[in-house]
Design a protein around this nucleic acid. Structure first.
Length: 269
DNA sequence: ATGCTAACCTGCGCGC
DNA sequence: TGCGCGCAGGTTAGCA
């Protein structure tokens, strides 16, 4: 489930509870995640948390000896609870904090991962990532230059983390609607001016969602254990066969790169 | 280099 | 009530 706003919300939820605290135990109940949980993870036992950060949709828990890299995949969530709290089905990894609390990774589909690296930003999975969408380095010029004469669709392009990180399926659809751009257009055919509209839309859509505390759909549980069901206003995602909020034309659904796309054929071209 | 497909998993809702 | 099917928020490896 988690798109970038949910990961950012998770970060903000766990950050104050982890900073400067000692990791007193690590328990792995199911090591078979997207990648096997490495034995090296045990290195952090006894270490103090120096910082908790986010890069793309990866959460980084940094200690003097190295960092834990966590990705929530499609269905992952992190929850901080008292040590005695009963473990739930699909709670695969837990970090004990000061012998009192545990940070638990819950992930039914197991597309997430828990890794360890002495230098996480140089890790294979992070080293080639594009700019953070909410920072100034993410510009229209950047997308325009990367697009070149390529023929890939704009929807696929903005969901490719080498171009910009953190744009998942919901927000890709919503940002394209906001920018008035059809998800099917080839990236090489888009003007710099239209890339500016798109960059602005991506920033706004993500910032709005973070402001609301993450979305929305199914199983998001925030770090304090409250269900975070903030229903974001979705203009196109999941709105197929319903009238466009702007022009009343029926929203169309199609499949691109094995992912559902939704758009208004009137407002987006 | 580019673009597409399969694959990794479980759970849920729907039609029959 | 039960079963099979299609679908789901992500991302990489591997192929043509």
């Amino acid at each position: 489930m988690p798109e970038l706003p949910e990961v950012e919300t998770t970060l903000r939820g766990i950050h104050p509870h982890l900073l400067q605290q000692k990791i007193t135990a690590v328990r792995v109940y199911q090591p078979k995640l997207r990648w096997a949980v490495p034995d090296e993870l045990q290195t952090i036992i006894g270490q103090r948390v120096l910082s908790v950060k986010r890069r793309a949709k990866y959460l980084l828990i940094e200690t003097k000896l190295g960092s834990v890299i966590i990705h929530l995949g499609m269905s992952g969530s992190l929850r901080l609870c008292d040590k005695g709290t009963t473990r739930q089905k699909h709670d695969h990894v837990e970090f004990e904090i000061n012998q009192q609390q545990v940070l638990r990774l819950h992930d039914p589909r197991r597309f997430g991962c828990v890794l360890f690296s002495q230098d996480p930003l140089q890790h294979k999975l992070l080293i080639n990532l594009g700019p953070e969408p909410l920072l100034d380095a993410f510009t229209a010029k950047h997308l325009y230059q990367r697009a070149g004469q390529r023929k890939v669709s704009i929807k696929s392009f903005i969901m490719d983390a080498k171009n910009v990180v953190g744009v998942g399926n919901i927000y890709a659809n919503e940002a394209l609607f906001m920018a008035g751009i059809s998800p099917k257009i080839a990236v090489g055919c888009i003007t710099l001016k239209r890339y500016q509209l798109l960059v602005d839309a991506i920033k706004q859509v993500l910032a709005d969602a973070i402001k609301q505390g993450g979305t929305t759909l199914n199983d998001f549980v925030n770090a304090d254990g409250d269900t975070g069901y903030f229903q974001l206003k979705l203009n196109v995602y999941g709105q197929n066969d319903k009238p466009c909020s702007q022009c009343e034309t029926m929203i169309i659904k199609l499949v691109q790169n094995q992912r559902a796309s939704f758009y208004c054929p009137q407002c987006q071209s």
